[in-house]
Amino acid sequence: MKKWQCVVCGFIYDEAEGWPDEGIAAGTRWEDVPADWQCPDCGVGKEDFEMIEMG
C-alpha cells in the first residue's frame, strides 16, 4: 500500500485507509480512485495534480 501527497496542499491519500467519507474504501489503490475524485482539502482534481508517491 502506498501514500500519495497533493502537491498543492500537502493532503495525503493513504491507500491503506482509502477515503471512506467519499465512498472510497480502505485499500483502494490510487489508480482505482475515480478520475474525477478531488482533493478533499483544496479541491484540485486527480489528473490536474501530481500526487507524489511516498512509498
Partner: peptide, 8 residues
C-alpha cells in the same frame, strides 16, 4: 476565490 478555479 478557491484553489480549483485558479488551477484551471
Amino acid at each position: 476565490m478557491y484553489v480549483m478555479p485558479l488551477m484551471s
